[in-house]
Design a protein around this nucleic acid. Sequence first.
DNA 1: TAGGCCATCTGGTCCT
DNA 2: AGGACCAGATGGCCTA
Length: 207
Amino acid sequence: MEDIGLLFDFDQDGSTDFAFWGQMDQNFHFQTQLESFLMDCQAASGQLSPWSTFGCQSVFSDAQLTLTDLDVQSPGLGVCAEGEGCPADEPLEAAKRRTRRLVVHQPYKVQRHAANIRERKRMLSINSAFEELRCHVPMFPYEKRLSKIDTLRLAIAYIALLREILMSGSDPKSYIDECMKNGYKNQSDAIWNTSDLTARLSWIKWD
DNA sequence: TAGGCCATCTGGTCCT
DNA sequence: AGGACCAGATGGCCTA
């Protein structure tokens, strides 16, 4: 039984986009396992842009085994070595050809890469939440994308103002107009410039 | 060119 | 033990 690791760099930027590792014994059916894994990758890549193309390069320059080893030990796979001018097949085949098999002498490295990938996915989900939040805070039509910190601060100020409107029981539009005329005094300590906030709200269609 | 913003990597800590 | 979460470090990109 030996450890193997597969590292995928789909966008060919030199960093690992997906890692897969496990143990392999004599009965290990490499092709089946790899195909099923690549199907997972394809499914995942649909959600995790920018993984749009398959192009794999080993990130371990000191890999102990190469595609030649893979060829010998998994004769059914039909892979060819880099630079052999393989025909352009569908992405799955291309990925298989470019996949590197590694004997993991550095299990920490592989685990670290897997952790990096998870962290990247986590950050992607946070960023998508920020995008969603940006859609719910008042923006000027001509305004460029808000930074994360500005999005948070504006959201805080916006929520505070909405609460005040609710508490006042008055019509939102006239409340905003009044704020524009007299200057909005925020009851909270929101960092966001409050006159800027009311100006933003004046763009909102309240009916 | 400095400063702001961001993505990524990394190691530490907490949680399941 | 492994994954989630977090914060610090770093480097790239953009803008004033």
